[in-house]
């Protein structure tokens, strides 16, 4: 399943690139997840009337 090297040169990014979607899902998650925190932080501020 897991292939340590999927390209001519092995690198961190090519390791994450295990199939048609793995790398891009990881990157999208990294970008979107913290927005949930921003959302709740803003909600808190809104409720406390800032």
């Amino acid at each position: 399943m897991f292939e340590p090297c999927t390209d001519i040169v092995c690198s961190f990014w090519s390791m994450l690139n295990q199939g048609p979607m793995t790398l891009t899902i990881i990157l999208h998650t990294l970008i979107v997840l913290p927005m949930i925190w921003i959302y709740f932080d803003e909600k808190k501020k809104l409720q406390s009337g800032e």
Binding site: T6, D7, I8, V9, S11, W13, S14, L16, N17, P20, M21, T22, L23, T24, L27, H28
Partner: peptide, 24 residues
């Protein structure tokens, strides 16, 4: 910004750009 990858499919760049370029 990462959509830039769609120009890095065939110019001597690593294969991981396929995925990044395609989906972003």
């Amino acid at each position: 910004i990462l959509g830039l990858g769609h120009h890095y499919f065939w110019i001597g760049t690593p294969e991981y750009w396929w995925e990044i370029g395609a989906l972003f």
